[in-house]
Simulated scan of single mutants.
Amino acid sequence: MEKEIREFVIYLHDVKKTSENTELSYKRDLQKLQSFLKEQGIEEPGRITETSLNSYILFLEKNQFAPATVSRHIAAVKAFFHFMVKKGMVSEDVSENLKAPRIEKKMPEILTMGEVVRLLEQPGRNTPKEIRDRAMLELLYATGIRVSELISLQITDLNLRLGYIICRDSSKERAIPFGNQAKEALLLYLKEARDILIKGTQTETLFVNCSGKPMSRQGFWKLIKYYAAKAGIEADITPHTLRHSFAAHLVEKGADLHSVQEMMGHSDISSTQVYANIGGSRIRSVYQQAHPRK
């Protein structure tokens, strides 16, 4: 099965144009399946049956894997078998009837508007690093983009005159506007900090670390944790918290879900609907606390 997995990952990269993270995730999940099947004496894809796949899913569930993780494994297995059938490696798709477990959608952690203001005010304007940090936080909250999109931005993706950025993934791109606060922070970064940070190297990456190289996810995670603690925010926030807060605050202020969906890059409106539910929960909480005849 090792050869088939290798060819599948190459297919994802060359044909589907998936990200490196997706490819590593699929490869890791399928190698786990391979190890399980090997222990059952199954090493050839043609010998895998629907029963053996169901046994694997049961094994994951018995070992306390979260429903979301089990669903991800099932998605990997289904994609793998679809590929093998298409390439004539197996005669039938025995993964067809696999059912993903029901996943209860957790409400995402969001900050209050006051907490966001405190967080964004933490980076100073005294050093290139602080100026960069402020620009990154302001842009993240102004646009709701993913951290992976933030650290991948190129200079050419930024239109300061019209106030928008271009975000791209493997299949599409979207233009997202930003306001004056983010614009001012970006102007200051480009004018006073970026040239110092890149240390004379030639790079089109918008945000770089103190060595002049592209910022990593881990580097930004540490950055946001540092400023959250400095702002006295007790919630265990992650870089994704500002993305959730951006969407929830827009919906709370009356933005329509389809516009928020487009800005967030959600393929399904149900992913955006959760932010409306947050608003409803907050309204109920305020009502219960304040209404004289509750």
Results as ranks from 00 to 15, higher is better:
95 S>L: 12
122 Q>E: 15
242 L>M: 06
197 L>T: 00
265 G>N: 11
234 E>T: 13
11 Y>P: 03
144 G>C: 05
69 T>G: 03
34 Q>F: 10
272 T>M: 00
120 L>F: 13
251 V>H: 02
54 N>M: 14
137 L>S: 07
59 F>V: 05
107 M>H: 11
257 L>Y: 01
264 M>G: 00
33 L>R: 02
259 S>C: 05
42 I>G: 04
70 V>Y: 03
254 G>I: 01
110 I>G: 00
201 T>L: 09
146 R>S: 08
216 S>W: 11
107 M>L: 15
100 A>H: 07
177 P>V: 13
274 V>E: 10
118 R>T: 09
163 G>A: 10
263 M>Q: 03
203 T>I: 03
10 I>C: 02
87 K>E: 15
70 V>Q: 05
270 S>N: 12
19 S>I: 05
177 P>Q: 06
11 Y>A: 07
291 H>V: 07
270 S>M: 05
137 L>W: 00
184 E>P: 01
90 V>L: 11
146 R>G: 04
155 I>K: 12
225 K>C: 03
105 K>N: 11
119 L>F: 03
59 F>H: 15
197 L>S: 02
245 S>Y: 04
116 V>A: 04
231 A>T: 06
31 Q>C: 04
29 D>S: 08
72 R>I: 08
97 N>E: 15
205 T>W: 12
279 G>F: 00
244 H>W: 09
282 R>M: 09
204 E>R: 13
56 Y>P: 01
61 E>Y: 02
179 G>N: 04
212 G>F: 00
244 H>N: 08
22 T>V: 11
78 K>N: 11
81 F>K: 12
